[in-house]
Write a protein that binds this DNA or RNA. Structure first.
Lengths: 258, 258
DNA sequence: CGACTAGTTGAGGCCAGTCAATGTTGGTGG
DNA sequence: CCACCAACATTGACTGGCCTCAACTAGTCG
C-alpha cells in the first residue's frame, strides 16, 4: 500500500477562474499560519509570532480547487499569490499552435503565481492535479506587509529567486540530459521534496499521468512508459501505475552522474 | 557591413571573481542613469527625476568585464545585481559531471544576478561574450532604496517575474520545439531585443559561437551549423560566420507557427 | 454494457547526434 | 610581415535514441 498524503475531506466549489476567484470560508474555520504544518516551508518561514499573526490576517481565505480545475490562466489579471496547502498543481505554458509544455509541478508549501507579478498578468496556467487547497495571498496587502516586515520581504525575494533557480535546473535537464537521466532526476527530485514534507522519500504516488510527466520532461508518453519498465527491470524501482517505490536511490543518482 | 553596436573603447581590468569584485571608476566619469540611453529599458524605468538621482547615488560604479571573463560564478556570495551597460553576457549552469547548459543570453539594459538572491549565493556563472561593462547595484542599498521608492520596488518585482517568464518560454522551447523552430525563435527573439535597443532587427552579429548557440538551444553545434546553411538555402536569411541578416522574418515566424 | 481514459508494448522511421575530415579565421611570436 | 597554431565553422557519412503509429489491456463511470 503506497500513500504519500493523509486523506482529507474538503468542501469544494466549482472553480471558474476566468472570473475573479470566488472566496470561500471553510465552515468558519480560518487558516492560521502558526498552526499550519507547512509554516516552516512556506512563506512565513522565520517570522516572529506577532509577525505571523499579521500575516494570518492577510491570508484570511482558503480555497478549494478541484482536480483538473484551473487556478489561473494566461492573461488573468494578477491579484494574488497562492500558497499550496494541500494537493498538487502543474503549471503549463501554451504555444499559439496549441502545443503545451508543463513547466512546473508544485507540492504543498510552495507558492505559485509569481510569473504574474509583471504588468501583463499571468503567463501560464495552473491546474490542480488532484483535489487541492490553496491559501489566497492578495499581493497588494502582502506587499504592504512585506514593507513593514523585513523578514517577510526577504522571504518574498527568496521565493522568487528560488523559482528562477528551479527553472534553470529544468533548462539544464531539458537541454542536456538523456531521457533516462530526466526520469531519474524527476523521481529523485520528487523523493527529496516529499521527504522535506515529512512523507516517505522512497514510496509515493505520482500525481501526473504518463503524458504529463512526458510533457514536463520534454519527452513522449510512450518513452516515459518504456523507461519506467526498463528501470523496473533493472531493479532500480517498482512501478504499478502511478505508485512508485524507489528501491535503489543511490543507483538512480549514479545514472545521473554520467 | 554588419554592425549592431557602436564601437566603444573601454578601460578594462582583469576580472577575478572568486574574490570580491574590484570596483573601478572610469577616469572620474560617473555613471548617471538619467543620461544613460538604456534608462527606459533598465531598472530606473518610470522613476521620477529625483528618484533617479537617488538611484544614481547607489549605482556609483561601473565595471569593465573582458570577453570570456566571469562576472560571478556558482557559490559566489550574492552582494549585488548587475545592469548590463554595454556588451553581452551568457549565464551557464554546470552539472556535476562537467556538462554545461547555457540558460541565458543577456543584452544591454538587462539585469543579471537575480538567481543569487536566495541564501546560497549565485547558482550559475555569468560570462562576458565580448568586452562589456556593467553597473554595480549593491543589493542591500538597492533594497533599502526600493523600500522608500514604490516604483523601484515594483520594478524589482517585475524584473524578477520577467526572468521567470523568460525561463518558462525557454522550457517550452527546449521541451516542445524542433531544432529548426528553436533556431528561428532564437533569431527572432534576438531581433526583437536588438530592435528594442534601437539597433537593426534584421541585421546583427551573433555574440555566441555555434557551440554556445547549440548549448543554449539544447542542440549540438553541427546541427546549428547545418540549420544556418539550410535556412540560408531556403532564402530566409543570410549568414556569414556570425553576421546574420534576416531576409524574411515573416516566413521565419511562420516556421514557428507549426 | 459501451465509451472513455490511462497505460503498455511492438515495429519501424526520422531527426538530431556522433565521428571525422577539411576549411576558415584570428591571435601570437619569431 | 609571415608562419604557426588554436579556435571556430562547415560538411559528409553513419548511427541511434526517441518519436510515430498502432494494437491491445485494464480500470472507471454513466
Amino acid at each position: 500500500m503506497v500513500s504519500n498524503r493523509p486523506s482529507a475531506r474538503v468542501p469544494f466549489q466549482a472553480a471558474q477562474c476566468t472570473e475573479s476567484p470566488t472566496i470561500i470560508e471553510f465552515g468558519g474555520l480560518r487558516t492560521h499560519c502558526n498552526s499550519c504544518g507547512l509554516r516552516n516551508l512556506c512563506i512565513p518561514t522565520g517570522l516572529a509570532p506577532e509577525a505571523m499573526r499579521q500575516l494570518d490576517q492577510i491570508i484570511s481565505h482558503r480555497r478549494g480547487v478541484r482536480k483538473r480545475d484551473t487556478l489561473y490562466r494566461p492573461g488573468d489579471a494578477f491579484t494574488a499569490l497562492y500558497a499550496i496547502r494541500l494537493g498538487t498543481f502543474k503549471t503549463v505554458v501554451l504555444a499559439e499552435d496549441g502545443r503545451e509544455q508543463i513547466t512546473g509541478c508544485h507540492l504543498p508549501g510552495e507558492i505559485i503565481g509569481m510569473d504574474g507579478i509583471g504588468e501583463q498578468g499571468h503567463a501560464c496556467q495552473a491546474i490542480a492535479l488532484e483535489d487541492s487547497e490553496v491559501c489566497f495571498l492578495p499581493f497588494d496587502r502582502l506587499e504592504k506587509l512585506a514593507h513593514a516586515l523585513p523578514v517577510l520581504q526577504a522571504n518574498l525575494y527568496r521565493l522568487l529567486s528560488r523559482d528562477i533557480r528551479r527553472d534553470q535546473d529544468m533548462m539544464m535537464l531539458l537541454g542536456s540530459r538523456s531521457a533516462e537521466e530526466r526520469l531519474a532526476l524527476f523521481l529523485l527530485n520528487l523523493a527529496g521534496r516529499y521527504q522535506a514534507l515529512g512523507y516517505s522519500p522512497s514510496e509515493f504516488v505520482l500525481r501526473m499521468t504518463r503524458e504529463e510527466i512526458a510533457s514536463y520532461l520534454g519527452l513522449k508518453l510512450e518513452t516515459v512508459s518504456r523507461l519506467f519498465t526498463r528501470l523496473q527491470e533493472e531493479g532500480f524501482l517498482q512501478v504499478e501505475g502511478r505508485a512508485v517505490k524507489l528501491l535503489d536511490a543511490t543507483a538512480l543518482r549514479h545514472l545521473i552522474g554520467h
